[in-house]
Amino acid sequence: MNILSVQSHVSVGHAGNASAVFPLQRMGINVWPVYTVLFSNSGASRKGSTVSAGWVEEILAGVDALGVMAQCNAILSGYLGEPDTAKVLANAVSSMKQQHPGLLYCCDPVMGDDGRVYVDEDL
């Protein structure tokens, strides 16, 4: 099984792809991580930045150019960082679902914690 995982990454802690990739790999699943943010950690004191929607789109195009997207069984998405990244992801999911309608899409709508929304309102 192959999963395209479009989510955040933290260096310290376990969130986004930093928590999803390893367990899925241990289950024998091939994971293609695409990072939407690169942060030191999660929480208010974090350092780092979002990955631009253009870069995410370029990474997805590069993966597609390898000819492996036809072998993708599922897409997993989490924290996207930027509103434009949601548009890039929606286009990718739509395109991939047209190519193989049985493709599973799992969305973890990361938007906030403890009753507080921390994503951009447009996202």
Results as ranks from 00 to 15, higher is better:
S8M: 05
V68M: 12
S11L: 12
G115C: 05
V10G: 11
Q99S: 14
P33N: 10
D114H: 14
S52G: 07
A61M: 06
E121K: 13
H14V: 01
T50A: 13
S94W: 11
S77K: 00
A20Y: 00
V63T: 04
A15K: 02
V63R: 12
W55D: 05
P33M: 00
A20F: 01
L103E: 09
D108P: 08
W55P: 01
M111W: 04
R46I: 05
T85C: 12
T36D: 04
T85R: 01
S8Q: 05
S95E: 13
M96Y: 09
A20P: 03
V37Q: 11
F39R: 09
K87Q: 15
N91H: 12
S52W: 12
M27W: 09
C72A: 13
L103Y: 04
V37E: 08
Q25D: 02
A18C: 00
D108Q: 04
V93C: 11
V34L: 05
M96F: 13
L38Y: 08
L89Q: 11
T50E: 10
Q25E: 15
N91S: 13
L66R: 06
Y105T: 02
G54A: 01
A86S: 11
R116G: 04
Q99F: 06
L24T: 03
Q71R: 15
E58T: 13
D120C: 05
H14Y: 13
M27F: 11
M96P: 02
T36Q: 10
P33R: 09
A18F: 03
F22P: 00
N91C: 10
I59G: 05
H14F: 08
S8T: 12
G43T: 05
M96A: 15
C106K: 10
M69L: 14
P23S: 05
Y118S: 12
Y35W: 10
G67M: 06
V88T: 10
F39Y: 14
M69E: 10
K47G: 12
A86I: 07
H9T: 06
V34M: 01
F22N: 08
G48P: 08
L60P: 04
V119E: 06
V119F: 10
G102S: 14
G54K: 07
N73I: 03
V12N: 12
L123V: 00
L123M: 05
V6N: 08
Y118W: 12
A61Y: 07
G13L: 02
N17D: 09
H9S: 11
S11K: 06
Y35D: 08
M111H: 09
S49G: 14
K47W: 09
N41H: 13
Y79R: 00
N41P: 00
I3M: 03
Y105R: 03
Y118P: 02
D122F: 01
S77E: 00
V88G: 09
R116C: 06
